[in-house]
Simulated scan of single mutants.
Amino acid sequence: MASNDIVLGFIFLFQTGFGALGNSFLLGLYTINFFIGPKLRLIDMILYHLAFVNDLMLLSKGIPQTMAAFGLTNFLDDVGCKLVFYLHRVARGLSLCTTCLLSSFQAITLSSGSSRWAGLKARALKFIVSICFLCWTFHLVAYYVTLLYVKGPNRSKNITGSNYLIYCSATTDVLFNVALYVFLIFLPDVLCVAIMVGTSGYMVFVLCKHHQRAKYIHGNNLTLTSSPETRATQSILLLVTLFVSFYSLNSILAFHIHLGKPTSWLVHISAFLTTCFPACSPFVLIVSDSQVPKYFLALWERIKLPV
């Protein structure tokens, strides 16, 4: 095994383990606090769902990619390949959908000063549950095609045609695949990214407007102490920026891989970009969302044994 492959394997191993640890920490923290801790915010329900699908995305992509980087390319059979790629594609779509829902909900929260937006926020819990259910249903059905064209590993060492997945292979009619991809995958993805960009731009506008108003009222003596709502908005803006950046880079690279002659390094880089967001997002929330440390401290005070 080449030294480059060993380094690549350890990179994937670190990324997968570190990201899974962060997402699992958030899942455990939100779950325990839901039952015995302080009351969770409505937005925490969305963050819980995001941590769950990101964990699923990391494990279904990171573990096989790590094994492939270490030179194990025949560890999955036909059923295993179908299941792993199906779970990854569904989790990836749900991660996009949940991040879009997160940015939209925060934009509504910032606009809840008016009675119309306040009423919409009051009914948001029912909407969130319904939207999450619809997202799961759509992606479970839309990515069913993955079960049809993903096959077991190809024994050929050339990463061309049907063997560009490295540890699995795919065979499908090109014209049918392009048409299906456009209507079931590409258009919904573009719509979600457009909503995220639009709501993020709106949130930046609202925050800048609020900052200018506060600066006008307090003058030069203004000391910026951000409210919890402002810090939550900033963390969500950072999450959206990370997602759109990694998603755009990976989409360009994946398009090149499908049309050109892929190499193992291009496939590995594409997989690395795919798992960057689910690996980074929990730590963005842990560092920038003030409620996460509060939940942890409240839990620690509750379970701490008396001296």
Rank of each mutant, 00 (worst) to 15 (best):
Y48M: 10
S281T: 15
I131D: 01
K39S: 14
V178E: 05
D5H: 11
K61R: 10
W300R: 12
A142R: 05
I286H: 04
R123G: 14
V182I: 14
C135T: 13
M1Q: 03
A51T: 07
R231T: 10
L96W: 04
I185L: 00
V307E: 01
P262H: 06
G219W: 06
L56D: 04
I252H: 02
W300T: 12
L207S: 10
F34V: 11
V90K: 02
D5W: 06
M57K: 02
L94T: 02
C81V: 06
C132E: 09
L29C: 03
L273H: 11
T275W: 01
K215Q: 12
I303L: 10
V79M: 03
Y30F: 14
S248N: 10
V150E: 01
T99P: 00
L134V: 15
G37Q: 12
T16K: 02
H268F: 10
I195A: 12
I269C: 02
W300H: 11
K39H: 13
S270E: 11
L101H: 09
N54W: 09
P153Y: 08
S111C: 13
Y143G: 03
L29Q: 04
V53Y: 01
S111H: 14
I257G: 05
I286Q: 03
L94D: 00
D44Y: 11
V284R: 01
P282N: 05
S3I: 11
Y30N: 10
M45Y: 13
G219V: 12
S264C: 02
V193N: 03
G260D: 14
E229A: 15
V141L: 11
L187S: 09
D173F: 08
P38R: 13
I46C: 08
S104M: 09
S288K: 07
T275M: 07
V182W: 06
G62K: 08
F255K: 12
L175G: 13
H256S: 11
F25A: 07
G201P: 01
N250H: 12
I32F: 06
Y143R: 05
F138L: 08
N177E: 09
L87P: 00
M196W: 04
I185T: 06
T233Y: 07
F18D: 05
C132G: 03
Y247T: 15
C100K: 07
G71T: 12
P293K: 12
C135R: 06
R155A: 01
C192S: 09
Y295Q: 08
V193E: 05
H49A: 15
L87F: 04
V193A: 06
M45I: 14
L165R: 00
T146K: 00
L50T: 13
A170L: 03
R92G: 09
A68C: 12
Q106D: 13
D77K: 03
M203C: 13
L102F: 07
G152T: 08
N163E: 05
V240G: 02
L238E: 02
F138K: 11
S290R: 15
H210S: 12
S156M: 04
L184D: 09
N4T: 08
L125D: 11
T31F: 07
L27F: 09
L58Q: 05
G17H: 03
L72N: 07
G28P: 02
C280V: 12
Q212K: 05
W117Q: 15
T99C: 08
Y164T: 07
F205W: 09
L207G: 04
V197A: 15
L175D: 15
L147D: 06
